[in-house]
């Protein structure tokens, strides 16, 4: 999603950008790191898991879509508070959000992943892959859990995660952008901020490559989500039509 930088930014510029992105990330995270730590051992019981598993497919979709829609609002707010984003034209703001919000959520989701028992925070408690069985999307759910697992192995700091999310969000190659240059500049600045952050932490130089290597998996999950949604729409058109308008706006064609 990024092109190598042709222009350099001053240390001050990238520092300011890093501060803006990290501040925005902290302010707009649904759960703080402390809350996540506190919730870590709050697991669904076998009985509760079975209850989810026996839900009708439509009901489970509705519930997951409601969570996703709620989470999207936090991504919109994350973007809005990053300096420079609101200076883009509104058409381009919308294009970047539509194309990138699920990727941002997938990156930030690894905060809510517990590697000791391969569970993810869902509706206030940690859930296993099996809990989502009634969605009828085992491959999508597995891919999401596997991504969370491999992302959590990278042990990203909050700063790295915030900057990486912003790099992905500000992708200048999204189709239909009216003015790519300011998006490219914004991405370049965040990318350089991320590089500087990694250097400062003395991170292994491969860490950035490992982060970028997750992008194909993220993209494939985004595509799989659209495929599943299209299929669900064929099976249950009325339920799909009742999904929240924000969800339909973001994932409608």
């Amino acid at each position: 999603t990024h092109s190598p930088l042709s222009e350099g930014f001053s240390l001050l510029e990238t520092e300011r950008m890093a501060q803006s992105v990290v501040k925005s990330h902290v302010e707009t995270s649904q759960y703080s790191t402390e809350e996540l730590k506190r919730l870590a051992w709050n697991l669904y019981t076998a009985e509760e898991t079975r209850t989810y598993q026996s839900k009708p497919m439509e009901a489970m979709w509705q519930q997951c879509v409601a969570h996703l829609t709620n989470a999207i609002q936090y991504v919109v707010e994350f973007a809005k508070r990053i300096s420079g984003f609101m200076e883009l034209c509104q058409n381009d703001q919308i294009i970047l959000l539509k194309a990138g919000c699920l990727s941002v959520l997938l990156i930030q989701m690894c905060r809510a992943y517990n590697a000791t028992n391969h569970t993810l925070l869902f509706d206030g408690k940690f859930a296993s892959v099996q809990l989502f069985k009634s969605l009828g999307c085992d491959d999508l759910v597995n891919a999401v859990f596997e991504l969370a697992k491999s992302m959590s192995r990278l042990q990203l700091t909050e700063e790295e995660m915030a900057l990486f999310s912003a790099v992905v969000l500000f992708s200048p190659d999204r189709p239909w952008l009216t003015d790519r240059q300011p998006v490219q500049r914004l991405q370049g600045k965040v990318y350089q901020a991320l590089q500087r952050c990694l250097n400062r932490e003395g991170a292994n130089e491969h860490k950035l490559n490992k982060m970028l290597a997750k992008l194909p998996a993220i993209k494939s999950i985004c595509n799989l989500h659209i495929d599943k949604l299209e299929f669900f729409r064929l099976l249950h058109p009325e339920t799909a039509y009742s999904f929240p308008p924000l969800y339909r706006e973001v994932f409608g064609s």
């Binding site: 709620n70 919109v76 707010e77 509104q90 919308i94 959000l97 539509k98 308008p245 924000l246 706006e249």
Partner: peptide, 20 residues
């Protein structure tokens, strides 16, 4: 614009769900 009514509104709102 009609197509992205909610996104437009979220982008224009100074108070967002996060602040509430």
């Amino acid at each position: 614009k009609e197509k992205h009514k909610i996104l437009h509104r979220l982008l224009q709102n100074s108070t967002s769900p996060v602040d509430l």
